[in-house]
Design a protein around this nucleic acid. Sequence first.
DNA 1: CCACTACCATACGCCACCGTATGTAACAGT
DNA 2: ACTGTTACATACGGTGGCGTATGGTAGTGG
Lengths: 193, 193
Amino acid sequence: MTRTTEKKKQLSADDWIKAAFRALSEGGVQAIRAEAIARELKTTKGSFYWHFRDVPALKEAMLARWCQMATEDIIAINKEPHADPATRLRELIALVTDERSAEYGGIRAEAAIREWARYDGKVAETARQVDRRRLDYLSSIAAELGYGDTDRRIVAQLLYGGLIGLEYLQAQNLAGAGTALQILGDMIAAKGK
Amino acid sequence: MTRTTEKKKQLSADDWIKAAFRALSEGGVQAIRAEAIARELKTTKGSFYWHFRDVPALKEAMLARWCQMATEDIIAINKEPHADPATRLRELIALVTDERSAEYGGIRAEAAIREWARYDGKVAETARQVDRRRLDYLSSIAAELGYGDTDRRIVAQLLYGGLIGLEYLQAQNLAGAGTALQILGDMIAAKGK
DNA sequence: CCACTACCATACGCCACCGTATGTAACAGT
DNA sequence: ACTGTTACATACGGTGGCGTATGGTAGTGG
């Protein structure tokens, strides 16, 4: 069962998308290149241009896939509404932080997409949708914690912004994994009256 | 006094570095290209390869320049130690947030450098130094506010991480300019016993 | 007036990547 | 066995950026 030698001969568009997310995570947007990914998949451009019209089409597919995953995350959280809003908060943080979607690059892909969004309006728009959903959900939790209409948006911004920044500090080995964010969550939950 | 037509005919390495920071801010690391910046400066590659050995040399110079500016920021803050630690905190936040160094791309350049650091170990090392200095300074303020040895590092991480994340949210028009961070600062200053 | 240097322009070869055109092996259905 | 489709492989022309080589010009010292 030597998967490296045998494996499967046929590739799917999904295989390309996954490989492209790996490239994105490791080398940023500029690493999404047809021939480079083809080498990684031990195939040629012929396969790529069979599954995709061109490179922008691959990027579109990646964006759609990421947006879909991010949306499903929120839906999954909403399907299991625990009574305790603090528990929900911790679950959401864990969900965004964990390596569940490592197949698509995990956290590093998130950071790369945020970077990508800075230079591509279409990507920025998609990221805005995802970010807005997450902020809205965090805001609803803040409301359950007793925050007012104006404060709960600030709380959501602090939590989500803190998550983003602390992920960077964690990647730089300048912060421990999630401890600071947990403390922020505790502060927010405690002050929530 | 039409500066666009007359201006000065001779370019310096500094002009190239400034233009490169502009390109970095607008297009990311991949936008740091000799010929593209030459077009922006209305000159040719000949000028570039006179002032720099190659493109990596330009990037090195940019990195050194940024590191130097960031270090001077901290030194300037330390030179004028106001009695009130909360005032110092607000000044530091304002200093990192404001457009003082807009000549070198300002905040957008900071974000681009953090992105750049993800794919270049040398850049990551320099960014780590800068981030560590800023975290240390924030940590010292937290100590003055009455936080213990363990908590003050967490406080610094929350403030700096929050700054990074909220800058992104602000760029996406998902957060107001600095209000959330001010509230976080107030929370931290209040809880500091 | 001349030589010399600093600074820039132009032209060139190189390479990586893009997208297309075309070949080709495997397999399916009839 | 013949044909068609699927899923690639290969070869090609085109573009854009890199770095070099070389030519040109403007200013300066002698």
